[in-house]
């Protein structure tokens, strides 16, 4: 059982490029397909893993591992999910110092750097769409971005402030 958990999450860690959401279909097929949990349970786990702080993929691995085999299971799943990217990045880190002053690599990265910014701007706009930002609520992300970008405020305070603000809003609207 531990071996099968380990191998499953190793595969998930090794083959998902582009963040936690890209690997959801893969995890669902493994977890629900192998009858580790029902589809309803899986959706519940997803909701909680999203609501938690931390890395989404790691949260899901720990959650599923814990539900199946308690603490040892969660350690096995987390380790397996993290191992492929850890090994790959460590290898890159060991080599990068030697190659980054290479003229070719330098030219490549000159082309890549502005593109990285575009590849962050796009998920920002998609997230704004998903969250349903309107002209009225746009003040929240704009204020958050300006505080971090221009004033150097730590995002920790933004997260705490936003959570407190949401709670207060719910309270004022009489939902709590």
């Amino acid at each position: 059982m531990y071996l099968s958990l380990f191998l499953t999450f190793l595969r998930i860690g090794a083959f998902t490029i582009g963040g936690g959401y890209a690997m959801l279909p893969l995890i669902e097929r493994e977890a629900v397909g192998r009858k580790w949990m029902s589809r309803e349970e899986f959706v519940d786990v997803l909701a909680v893993a999203q609501a938690m702080p931390g890395i989404f993929a790691v949260n899901i691995a720990i959650f599923i591992g814990y539900r199946l085999k308690k603490t040892p299971g969660s350690i096995v799943c987390c380790l397996a999910a993290v191992l492929p990217s850890f090994l790959m990045i460590l290898t890159i880190a060991l080599c990068f110092a030697h190659i980054k002053d290479n003229a070719w690599v330098d030219r490549m990265f000159r082309g890549i750097r502005p593109v990285v910014v575009a590849l962050i701007a796009v998920p920002c706009l998609s997230a704004a769409k998903t969250v349903g930002i309107t002209w009225q609520t746009a003040v929240i992300p704009i204020a958050a971005a300006l505080l971090i970008w221009q004033m150097g405020v730590s995002p920790v305070y933004i997260v705490l402030l936003a959570a407190a603000g949401g709670w207060l809003y719910g309270r004022l609207m009489g939902r709590l």
Partner: peptide, 22 residues
């Protein structure tokens, strides 16, 4: 759930800040 009413839009701002800082 209420806390997330504030967290979700702020998340968009966090991503925007990452893009702006770069």
């Amino acid at each position: 759930e209420a806390a997330f009413l504030g967290l979700r839009p702020a998340t968009v701002g966090l991503i925007a800040a990452a893009a702006l800082m770069l």
